[in-house]
């Protein structure tokens, strides 16, 4: 269970949200909606602990995330606007480094299965820089199937993905939720039926 209590955030001295409270249970998909500049990314970054709110706290299973970082990050998968892959390394190098970094051990054939799933077979040794935007996004997304994380926080995960990729991701989301996972996502296009049931949370643009 992820809970936000009384979050306040201001950027450039404009208050994005004030006293925002939010509870997301396990087996729930929360679709965070709001116009550009409403503070969706800021909220997600606060929920991950990457940035700190001006006031309020984020709790995971009743514990403040700043108090038990290791426990929270063990269960968390976050994908932001930036893919987190180094351009001069190959997809395979990037992924294995990321797995070691997050203390996840997977057998090699799982790694290749996932690469096949996202359609990157034959491209795994090419420096990521040479891949197309959609393919780079797929490299970043393939971590979803490698790290057994309970909490997924996804910031615009559908950017640059083609129809097949969108469908694959939405199906995975549905599956994750039915397995007791928890997802918070933003998106400019509304989620289709493939993503399953979801709750919508609207973030108002404030002046």
């Amino acid at each position: 269970m992820l809970e936000a209590r009384g979050l306040t955030c201001s950027k450039r001295d404009r208050t994005l949200f004030e006293g925002l409270s939010l509870v997301v249970d396990s087996s729930e998909l929360l679709y965070l909606r709001g116009s550009n500049g409403a503070g969706k990314t800021s909220l997600l970054r606060i929920l991950t602990g990457l940035s700190s709110p001006d006031a309020g706290a984020v709790l995971y299973n009743g514990v403040d995330i700043s108090e038990d970082k290791a426990g929270y990050y063990h269960d968390l998968f976050y994908l932001g606007h930036k893919s987190g892959t180094n351009g001069s390394l190959s997809a395979l190098d990037n992924l294995s480094f990321w797995l070691a970094q997050h203390k996840v051990s997977v057998p090699d054939n799982t790694l290749f299965d996932v690469l096949e799933k996202v359609g990157l077979v034959g491209l795994e040794d090419v420096p990521v820089r040479y891949l197309s935007a959609g393919q780079q996004r797929r490299v970043a997304l393939s971590r979803l199937w490698l790290k057994p994380a309970k909490v997924w926080i996804l910031d615009e995960p559908f950017t640059a993905l083609d129809v097949k990729g969108v469908n694959l991701l939405e199906t995975s989301m549905k599956e994750h939720v039915s397995n007791g996972g928890l997802i918070i996502t933003t998106s400019h296009q509304s989620l289709s039926n493939a993503a399953g049931e979801h709750r919508v949370f609207d973030l108002e643009y404030r002046f």
Partner: peptide
Amino acid sequence: DDFQDGSLEQYMLSG
């Protein structure tokens, strides 16, 4: 590079 491509975020989220 780590900042621009988001690797730094992933470091911070790895515990």
